[in-house]
Design a protein around this nucleic acid. Structure first.
Lengths: 338, 338
DNA sequence: TATATTTGTTTAATCGATTAACCAAAAGTA
DNA sequence: TACTTTTGGTTAATCGATTAAACAAATATA
């Protein structure tokens, strides 16, 4: 089996011209005659020539690779974002390398090292829940390549960001629940140290006040928002003397956990307790009752993040000017709340 | 902002030694003194040296990159396989590049081109449903790098394969349904041209015969197995004069579609019709009733595929000897069938 | 006719790390 | 002492593609 791949030199030898001419011919340089170009392309095809990306990337100083870091690909939101990013970047001649942190800070650091090692031209990331130490992200910046964050960002890091308006989303949810007649609305949220969860909590608190509802400390819970977490936290809420009549959960997965417990306990949703999730994961429309949720426009987020990256490349000196894009979200009302 | 990255030369200059010495020191060559090694590592750290993967890969002729092609990452099965593959490969010093075909033949060809262009050291793939033309896969083989298929393979292609025993899985399902008292079992399967779906269909037919059940042509349907497809095909089965009392669907997504329709029509599952899916996607345990399904041991598949790949590298001449690994699957019985 | 310009290509350097081949100095051995 | 071996490097070529600079030949211009 022929392990050697065809190189420019092979083509050059066949035609008895220099490799430079071959390179230029393939890159459609104006200084090469049409005749030569045709001949080169012909031979390239015959020899099944496959350009060596490593060599050209090394020479040009650009790998045409974009690194992507997501908490996990196995989430509809993230995989959709990645898909739409990929579309935009592919068109611009970039390939993407997807890595997952699995919400682990350590893995995230490894991912960053790997991507820098692969000489990516930029990194688009959504931070792990665990991440509080930003030194690794600073490392990216000091490497001189663009860094764009989406969904899970950080104010302290002076970089571009694309995400939805979490604060307003909470307002939309509370307004909807109030319209449905709810008087005691609980919130199972994420940890405040994560910007997006903090914003959802702030939105919840402000909206509750705005509607003159009781702001009860026991109705606000911080958790890591896994499915199992949702199960545990709803139990706490159900154990209260004065039960809530609605629960707004900051993640669909945790909302699903809560729903499971409610069903197991034969508590009717939405009649006895109304439930709202966040993220519009596909299963929210599949379970019974279907879960009201917030759609985050994953396709738009991916597209904008990719375009923001493209705006930076080809600039000689990277000037990371803060460029925060905040999209409006959309409330998808389903059976669990009406 | 400092856009220039530290190179071996920079370190060499600081210490007034040759770049060769620096390279050897960092690679722990025996011919370099401990003193020099220490000094080099020290300076490398101070200058925040990041080796240039492109350069070393070019020189060594190995990119230490493995290309992965899956129909989509947004499926629990595939993302789990990828995750476990990644674990094994990372440990061996390889990074992976994940690409998705979205079940499109055209996208799959593009992915293959991209991966070859990036000089990956091997490709691990699961074929798109659409794919029947194998010339692009032949291209990988003629490139001299190992190709390993998993789940969606092809007999005609003379390469390694890791998957589960689809034929036996069908037998397990039918045996289970028969034990539950079912007499008319339908099968909503995939297209026969895809090996795994063909095997599931063969298993279904043989198992039906084995249990002396009526083998009725109208009970066997071929489809593309999307959720929407599941909805449409179950409608057909319900329209039959002689309805089935159980339906075995070759994909969880289509099974979910079928379940939705059954619920909408107030047909009780499992009392009136029993339902079995395939793949053990997480939602099968989340919906009501939970769906009986087949677990494919995604972690094992990923691990084995990765290890098969590792078995090939470091060999000078690739001898692709057929190496088919068929794992046993596991039936997870849930409410939809008992 | 003499000079300038254009066309089409070659030469050679380069990207950064690796490595075969070579070499000087120190240490060991007969 | 004279020769061999070991130690700790250095030099220079290399991977394959790109590109600045050079250049010969053809064509245009004065």
């Amino acid at each position: 089996m022929n392990k050697k791949r065809t190189t420019l030199k092979d083509i050059a030898n066949v035609l008895s011209i220099s490799t430079a001419a071959v390179s230029k011919a393939l890159n459609d340089d104006t200084r090469i005659s049409v005749k030569t170009k045709k001949a080169v392309r012909q031979v390239a095809k015959e020899l099944n020539y496959q350009p060596n990306h490593l060599a050209s990337a090394l020479r040009k100083g650009k790998s045409k690779l974009v690194g992507v870091i997501v908490p996990r690909t196995n989430s509809h939101f993230f995989s959709s974002v990645v898909e739409s990013m990929e579309g935009v970047l592919n068109k611009a001649g970039y390939n993407i390398i997807i890595t997952q942190s699995n919400e682990s800070f350590e893995k995230e650091c490894n991912n960053i090292d790997t991507l820098l090692y692969l000489q990516v031209d930029g990194i688009i990331a959504s931070m792990a829940n665990e991440t509080v130490d930003l030194s690794y992200y600073e490392k990216i910046k000091s490497n001189g390549i663009p860094l764009i964050l989406f969904d899970r960002g950080e104010n302290d890091l002076n970089v571009d960001y694309v995400g939805i308006n979490d604060y307003d989303s909470s307002h939309m949810i509370i307004a909807h629940l109030v319209a449905q007649g709810c008087k005691r609305i609980a919130h199972i949220g994420g940890y405040r140290r994560t910007r997006i969860f903090n914003n959802r909590i702030r939105g919840y608190i402000d909206a509750i006040k705005k509607h003159d509802l009781p702001h009860d400390d026991e109705l606000l819970i911080e958790s890591s928002l896994t499915l199992e977490d949702g199960r545990q936290q709803i139990e706490k809420l159900l154990a209260l003397k004065n039960r809530p009549d609605a629960v707004y959960v900051a993640s669909d997965y945790a909302a699903l956990g809560a729903l499971q417990v409610l069903k197991e306990k034969n508590i009717k949703v939405p009649e006895e307790i109304k439930l709202v999730g966040f993220g519009n994961e596909p299963f929210t429309s599949l379970v019974t009752p279907s879960i009201t949720s917030i759609s985050q426009h994953s396709d738009k987020i991916g597209k904008l993040a990719a375009e923001t990256f493209l705006g930076y490349v080809d600039q000689d000196v990277i000037v990371q000017s803060l460029n925060k894009i905040i999209l409006d979200s959309e409330l998808i009302v389903r059976s669990s709340s009406e």
